[in-house]
Design a protein around this nucleic acid. Structure first.
Lengths: 276, 276
DNA sequence: CGTTTGCTTGACAGCATTCAACGTTGGTGG
DNA sequence: CCACCAACGTTGAATGCTGTCAAGCAAACG
């Protein structure tokens, strides 16, 4: 349970294909995602049934005929440039979105201007579920790199899931998983110290990247120290210091946003260590 | 003691009838809830359609015929003694539960024994949504006073909500609201100081109690300082000290678990104050 | 090549935790 | 009925983790 944010998106894909890790990057270029979708997207027809993310995304477990119906639902994609918002707090809620390529953060703001990053979303993960509650979005979703999402009109999704119980159940599972994930983050924010938080964060990230075919030991952070800090309830200086400390202790090699985990067991031990 | 006639909450009822606050209590006795259900429950047939919580609970907005169908679904109640668990982490997930009377906490635990209270649930609120994700419950739900819940078999709920889109939508809204709530807690845990956290907590509690027909200014806490602390990411001593500080500043009158808010505007100002 | 943005590091301060002692409440049993 | 106990709550003093402020560096961008 200590892995606070561990949505097991592909429940039974423990050993997905695992290409070598991304090595270097220009900020803004979609490196992590590049391995998942190395070909130009627009050359594909929009279709869940032929999407290579279908085992990580909404369609998990659906049969071929069901997938065909889903294809009628997910008819459009939308591209979002790095730094742009997919939606803002207060925007009318009409659709949920599945990340196709790229990387997002979601954040909530308080009236006095503080904000809190509530999550980072990568390929196959859903965005916008917060909007169902009041018919308006309750957070901002910002692209951390040039990204593309599949637009899933919510009314049609409800309609289709009244027809197909598998889809209905899958959608409920995804919402429930989000709740469980959030509770894990609350545990992290409420009871862990800086080192534990960062270690848990890195392990969670690598686990999700691994499930998408990337190396479990090397990653390129798509977010700034400040964004990591906001997510983890720390200041950016503390994040930076903790990275340096991990490096000194031989747990990581840190070079700006390029991270290599050199002692995963050590990181894991940190997360599970009892306080004091 | 308290006005027995239907305290109800409609989503947009800003000024519900507001009986005076509960005054004194024996720990474990259901004082807050007593006003909502002053009559012996067991004398009622289990039926959403005649439940005075229907405007706060799953049935919100359903028509009379739909309510009748819901009655066939919610057929049983279950009583939980103070301190007992409604379910534990790992228990097979079969039902969600609506709090009928009483008060619960939910908590998650990490492998090393730390736990985090993830929420407090009062009459009309749903428990168990975390279980959908893996078919097993992902937290413990503990009664903080002798309580009663309505058992809602999940399979049947899915079935019925394929039939009635209003029910489907209402259920989705409830799950979405839980996600939004969790994000609010993350904001609290990630960026607020002790005073702000406690003030926000108290305002949230009184708001929910007020929606159930109780005073907006007086309340009896059903949980210990330690449980409050766990929820807010603070140690119990810090919670206690902050209560004392609020009292010194004239914001509250604190007498163990009896709280009277004497300066709500002051509390509200605290929550909205910019840090520094 | 200069400017902007992001990252690192140091010194210091402050808020919450830790440790400890004591007070209060409610339940139990003599 | 009262003494005693256990659980809960309050308060003080000291420690320490993280935040704050500041300076300098590195990388990206136009």
């Amino acid at each position: 349970m200590l892995n606070p944010t561990a949505p097991q998106i592909a429940p039974h894909a423990d050993q997905p294909p695992c290409p070598s890790a991304p090595c270097s990057s220009t900020r803004g270029a979609s490196v992590n995602s590049a391995a998942v979708t190395p070909i130009k997207l627009d050359s594909f027809k929009v279709a869940c049934s032929s999407c290579n993310l279908r085992e990580l995304c909404l369609p998990v477990g659906l049969s071929q005929p069901q997938l065909t119906h889903l294809d009628t639902l997910v008819a459009t994609r939308r591209s979002i440039k790095r730094g742009d918002a997919l939606f803002h707090t207060g925007d009318p809620f009409k659709s949920v979105y599945a990340v196709r390529t790229g990387f997002f953060k979601t954040r909530v703001s308080s009236e006095d201007g503080r904000d809190q990053v509530t999550g980072f979303q990568m390929a196959g993960e859903l965005l916008g579920l917060d909007g169902i509650s009041t018919d308006r979005h309750a957070c901002d979703a910002i692209a951390l790199e040039d990204s593309q999402v599949c637009v899933i009109p919510y009314g049609q999704l409800e309609e289709l899931s009244r027809e197909f119980s598998d889809l209905q159940h899958q959608f409920h599972k995804i919402m429930s998983r989000e709740i469980v994930r959030d509770h894990g983050v609350m545990l992290l924010l409420g009871s862990m110290r800086a080192e534990e938080r960062l270690a848990a964060f890195l392990l969670n990230l690598t686990q999700r990247l691994h499930a998408r075919g990337f190396s479990a030991s090397a990653l390129v952070l798509r977010m700034t120290r400040e964004e990591i800090g906001s997510y983890l309830g720390l200041k950016l200086e503390t994040v930076s210091r903790t990275f340096s400390k991990f490096q000194d202790e031989g747990l990581l090699e840190v070079k700006q946003r390029d991270i290599r985990i050199t002692d995963e067991a050590g990181l894991r031990a940190l997360v599970n260590s009892v306080r004091c």
